[in-house]
Nucleic acid binder design. Structure first.
Lengths: 140, 140
DNA sequence: GCCAGAGTACTCGGATAATCCATGTCCGAGTGCGTACGG
DNA sequence: CCGTACGCACTCGGACATGGATTATCCGAGTACTCTGGC
């Protein structure tokens, strides 16, 4: 599995939890659904718990549950939770003062990237976890 | 997924080549501007050469030059060239037939991601390498 | 029968090894200029 | 003097080590159920 499928895994897990409802599921079961290691799921769910989307409970009969109405979980918020640094990292500012491009490129690229990401977030905001669940259930 | 900084480096290099014009530059000089290793630049320029944006010439007095008018190089095309697999990779299709979410999630996520990326591409298409160069020169 | 207590099974969370990708280093292939030699 | 052939300097492109990040394994902390013993 590639390194950057965190977002896809996060959405997969959220949809699964929305599907299961109040019962919730353990990280092992979710991992079986995603076909990965339970630790990966736990780590991603840790990020989602910090953002307030899920709640984890240890102990027997523990597991994860949604902490919010899936209709209130928009996809852009999930992306911010699991990729807080943004999609397009800019390389470190080069100290090359000779090249005029080096000096100004960072600021210019930052603006372009911010606008592009904002556009993407606007589109993602239109969809919620509940929408995804409905589509999955209708296609499945 | 954290896209690496390939895209930022690619744009930096393209702007630098547009700034230099017909003279072009070697990978070593470009690497000095980007503050990285020449081989990184060569690899990215290899992708851009495949896409027809630049042309590389070996031998003495070799180097890279733009192969197209910078006004005709849109930022979305550059992104496609350096990240052909898209921004949001979807994890491998899990063989878990028991979970209904597993079966349908891939297709649903694929659609959502495609729309989000399309929105971003539309925004990126509005800007060209020449626009970036103009902004860099005005701010510098 | 009922309650208290320890025991057990099960889960999450963090710390520690193994693995994978990206980066960095090196070498061969190719090109163009410069020079030396012969005519 | 002029042309040709060789040599050299320089560059790209790909193959081989290295580093950091991601992933997988392991162990401790915590919770709820269960069983046992006493009242």
């Amino acid at each position: 599995m590639t390194t950057s499928s965190r977002y896809a895994v996060a959405l997969h897990v959220l949809v699964a939890l929305a599907h299961l409802g109040e019962d919730g599921a353990t990280s092992e079961r979710l991992a079986g659904s995603v076909n990965t290691n339970p630790v990966v799921v736990r780590r991603i769910l840790g990020l989602l718990a910090k953002a307030g989307f899920v709640s984890g409970q240890g102990g027997r009969h523990g597991g994860y549950k949604l902490a919010r109405d899936p209709k209130k979980i928009a996809l852009d918020a999930v992306l911010k939770a699991v990729e807080p640094d943004g999609i397009f990292p800019v390389h470190e500012n080069p100290p090359n003062r000779v090249c005029p491009v080096s000096c100004g490129i960072k600021e210019v690229l930052g603006g372009v990237f911010a606008r592009a990401e904002a556009s993407m977030h606007d589109r993602l905001r239109e969809t919620s976890v509940a929408d995804l669940l409905r589509r999955v259930e209708s296609t499945g």
